[in-house]
């Protein structure tokens, strides 16, 4: 069996139809990652039972772990498929969609909830307009930059959301990735002017208090975004906001 790579893939034809499983085997190549293997399957989609089937559908784009497209569950854990090298994986390699999101088809899910939540928390800097005002933003120390940059590398891939025990189809929780963006925007020298708006957005239902500090998110984040540390800091910011709301100032 060493000369093949075996896959067990969860298939689903339509959001409303039931799942089923198929197995595939492709010739072994040391260089294969999960996406390149899916590409090989796509070109000759024949199951190990010899049945020619529709090729599995999945999402991928950059192939270098920076666009966030190709998140799926590989052997039970959400990660970027493009950087999942088959040589490091136990076979058969089990591929499933991130089931905390609605399945569109096969391994493809609908992650619009993440983008909706970025809107919900107002994850942007309120600027006058995208023209030159002949001055930049105020200075930022290299130390502040270190934290901001770590947060800004979140590619909205959804792995943390999939791992989170509180984010899901029928739940309201904003989820770790959009929360961390609140801290990033609140840390910007002018972004902090709208700090109260963002904090109020995460102090209501589905907000920060829905997090139980399970720490799953930070363990699966492919970009090592300090999610739990960010959520901790936001806890202090919301407490301070609450006091400001009550006592003013």
């Amino acid at each position: 069996m060493a000369d093949t790579i075996r896959f067990r893939i969860r298939r689903q034809d339509h959001p409303d139809s039931g799942p089923y499983w198929q197995e595939f085997a492709i010739p072994y190549r040391r260089e294969h990652n999960v996406v390149s293997a899916l590409l090989a399957i796509r070109e000759n989609p024949v199951t190990i039972d010899g049945e020619r089937v529709a090729p599995p559908v999945w999402d991928s784009n950059c192939m270098e772990e920076v666009c966030g497209s190709c998140s799926l569950r590989v052997n039970g854990r959400a990660r970027q498929a493009c950087s999942a090298l088959v040589d490091t994986l136990e076979q058969p390699i089990v591929l499933e969609p991130m089931l905390t999101f609605p399945v569109v088809r096969d391994l493809l899910v609908d992650r619009s909830a993440m983008f909706d939540n970025l809107r919900r928390v107002k994850a942007w800097i309120d600027i006058d307009g995208s023209w030159d005002i002949h001055t930049g933003a105020p200075r930022i120390s290299p130390q502040e930059w270190d934290l901001n940059y770590a947060l800004s590398r979140c590619m909205t891939c959804g792995c943390c959301m999939d791992a989170c025990p509180h984010f899901g189809l029928d739940r309201d929780f904003i989820g770790p990735a959009p929360l961390a963006q609140v801290l990033l925007m609140n840390s910007h020298p002018t972004g902090k002017y709208s700090r109260a708006d963002r904090l109020h957005a995460i102090m209501s239902d589905g907000g920060l208090t829905d997090c139980s500090s399970a720490q799953n998110c930070v363990r699966v984040c492919p970009k090592h975004v300090p999610l739990t540390a960010a959520i901790g800091k936001l806890g202090r910011q919301t407490t301070a906001q609450l006091l400001r709301d009550i006592f003013g100032g």
């Binding site: 942007w124 800097i125 023209w131 930049g136 933003a137 290299p142 940059y149 990033l184 910007h188 002018t190």
Partner: peptide, 24 residues
């Protein structure tokens, strides 16, 4: 107009790398 674009990006919150003085 390139420097003006950079200034605009900076206002949008782009995390440009900094010198020890906090400048781009």
């Amino acid at each position: 107009e390139a420097p003006g674009l950079i200034r605009t990006f900076e206002r949008m919150g782009v995390t440009f790398s900094r010198t020890p003085e906090g400048l781009l």
